[in-house]
Design a protein around this nucleic acid. Structure first.
Lengths: 254, 254
DNA sequence: GCGCTTAGCCGCTCA
DNA sequence: TGAGCGGTTAAGCGC
């Protein structure tokens, strides 16, 4: 059910907004306003025509006419108040922790709209690093011939290694998997894991590619790099398997 | 100017959307649809009632009823097409680089709205230079150990220096503060102040960072650079101070 | 264009 | 509560 007012008087708009907030509906306002943000940082946006969205969970989103990212926002569970002043509507949103405020002052309201959205749809994301690990765990030959993977998500002294295992020659190895280009940070991450061990182990970094500086450090530290063909790996797994993995993570959810 | 249709027939909605895309307006659609994303990753969102926003710059934003982040999106400069199929409206958005697609299939349209937003407002992030100076004036140790600041906004022969003071060793200093990366211009500005003095003084440039060429000139002119941690400095202002500021701003609010 | 760093990063997990 | 870490991270800047 959708309610809407076009070019409402400010007092009417204020009533409409308060009713929408009270009944926890999606609220969309188009009008001329300015915004002040105060919290971890601060910002100030002077007057202009924009789009304000307040969701039923108390999130606030402010969009200008361009860009896909909001200019200001607040996450869910904000306390939101709307009040009428002389020739102005003031919407104040308070986030509890960290303490942050958004103050929106409307001069003009072009449209207010409220709606209840019924959405039980399911959102599924493509192969994540987690799923990639799942695949590699059942196909260690894609990392190295003769490699046996022993543990997954192994908690080490200095972080959580994707895999630990034993290579063809009986050396213990730690494996770090990246879904994207491995950079200096990835190499350092793997190196950290290794340095925190008492004995020297082999380290294998698996990624679709590696940056030049990343490779330099990797070679200096005598680590191995294994190029992953993400697409080929994805094809080792059926959609069914992905859904099973998801089910494991999101267990109870419908 | 705002146009709107409530519960339009799909063919009417399709016409409305195409007209909005053609004339490069902000487009808002509320309806039941599913979304497929294909690109660097992939995702699939099954049927449900949601909010679709298409901006005049070709950005696409899809929001569910909860959360402040979009479930799917595309950045500006996407090519967007809308077509009518049997009992469905299909909106396809293509991002050129990297190649990515969003396919939105509407079963039902509850509302379509288009608007032109006029927004020449200015957005300013973080503590203003003024506030930054305020903080540094009460915490000169963040500029240099043992520094005593004597004056603020001191009018000199060739401009207004942010601070003048005396360093640990008794040298007179002029301090210039920048909120953003200091460049060649900032260095020259500080140098100007110093050259206009009869005696040679020390010059300290404070900024979160400095460009390479800026640093070269700075060193050549024998000036000091002090890296500012804007975030840490901001945190020297307590929340209490923020709340006082808010109170001042929002005075009447309950 | 690559590679690196920052962000009101966000959001998740786990000690 | 904090640390670690992945992200369709995005976005900026230097090389």
């Amino acid at each position: 059910m959708i309610n809407i007012m076009l070019n409402p008087a400010l007092n009417k708009a204020c009533g409409f907004i308060n009713e929408s907030l009270r009944s926890k509906k999606l609220l969309i306002c188009i009008g001329a306003f300015n915004v002040e943000y105060l919290g971890r940082s601060s910002s100030s946006l002077s007057q202009g025509e924009r789009l304000l969205i307040v969701k039923e969970d108390g999130s606030v989103i402010i969009h200008r006419s361009y860009g896909y990212k909001p200019v200001n926002w607040q996450p869910p569970r904000c306390r939101i108040k709307c009040s009428l002043e002389v020739e102005k509507i003031i919407i104040l949103s308070e986030r509890r922790k960290p303490k942050e405020f958004l103050r929106i002052v409307f001069d003009t309201m072009h449209a207010v709209l409220s709606a209840s959205l019924t959405d039980s749809g399911r959102f599924v994301m493509g192969p994540t690093e987690d799923i990639l690990c799942e695949i590699l765990f059942s196909h260690p030959e894609y990392i190295e011939q003769g490699l046996r993977l022993v543990s997954r998500e192994k908690a080490l002294a200095s972080g959580v290694a994707d895999f630990t295992g034993v290579d063809e020659k009986g050396n213990f190895v730690i494996v770090e998997v990246k879904r994207h280009v491995a950079g200096v940070d990835s190499v350092k991450q793997l190196d950290q894991y290794l340095r925190a061990q008492s004995k020297p182990l082999r380290g294998i970094l698996c990624a679709p590619s590696i940056t030049k500086t990343g490779r330099v450090i990797l070679m200096k530290k005598n680590l191995s790099f294994r190029k992953l063909n993400i697409k080929a790996l994805s094809e080792l797994i059926t959609l069914r398997t992905i859904e099973e993995t998801l089910d494991k993570h999101f267990d109870g959810s419908p």
